[in-house]
Design a protein around this nucleic acid. Structure first.
Length: 216
DNA sequence: AACTCGGGGCA
DNA sequence: TGCCCAGAGTT
């Protein structure tokens, strides 16, 4: 397993490779972040950005989403996959925000996970990035990168990956860790065809060295 | 743990 | 054309 210093090295290199990965702070408020991350499930970030750009001009508050019909909301996000379920979840979620939280987004991941369409990953993103709560979001990219590099074990569950990262990454870096590893995983350490030969982390990457060796 | 939802992007 | 994608919910 990599130690704290090696993990710090990895995160610094990722930041150099993708300087645009400064956290999802382009969303001006927690509410928009919840909607954006909910919509992003099984979609690429570019497509989501294209939709939210228009969406957030029309809808500012939970009440705004509840003021239109389900069909109208579905139509507004129609270019995104799974749009029917996502539109329904947004309405349910907004109704709960209005009824239980006075129109505000709750801070803790436990409360966030009770919202429709918000699972463990989305809850952790919102909690850590919007509220700086103690959490690190682990999605498929973060999980794969963590396992390849040797930050955690191959057989670890998502929760175990989370725990390991929180144990070995300095607290002040938790909110940014997710986004750094996302970019690195999405554009460099890809699921299918990772670019090991040009990887600045090759010297300490368990999986990378294995792949370079078997390639010949 | 396996399955389903789903339109757009990309090879 | 076919395959994959910043997951969540159900069984």
């Amino acid at each position: 397993m990599l130690n704290k210093k090696q993990i710090r090295f990895c995160l610094d290199k990722m930041a150099e490779m993708f300087p645009e990965a400064k956290g999802e702070l382009n969303h001006s408020n927690p509410f928009e972040l919840v909607i954006a991350v909910l919509l992003s499930a099984q979609c690429t970030d570019k497509l989501v950005n294209k939709v939210t750009e228009k969406l957030f001009k029309k809808y500012k508050t939970p009440e705004d989403y509840l003021a239109v019909s389900l069909e109208e909301l579905q139509d507004d996000i129609k270019s995104i996959g799974l749009y029917r379920n996502k539109a329904k979840n947004i309405r349910k979620l907004c109704q709960v925000l209005v009824d239980k939280y006075e129109g505000e987004v709750p801070r803790t991941k436990e409360e966030l996970m009770t919202l429709a369409g918000v699972g463990r990953k989305t809850a952790n993103v919102v909690a850590s990035i919007a509220f700086n709560e103690p959490a690190i979001a682990v999605d498929t990219h973060v999980e794969r990168v963590s396992k390849r590099l040797g930050i955690c074990r191959w057989k670890d569950s998502v929760m175990e990956v989370e725990e390991t990262l929180m144990k070995k990454v300095p607290r002040e870096e938790w909110s940014i860790t997710h986004h750094r590893m996302i970019f690195f995983g999405r554009y460099h350490c890809k699921a299918r065809n990772p670019n090991c030969p040009e990887c600045p982390l090759l010297e300490i990457c368990r999986e990378g060295q294995k792949r370079m060796k078997t390639r010949g």
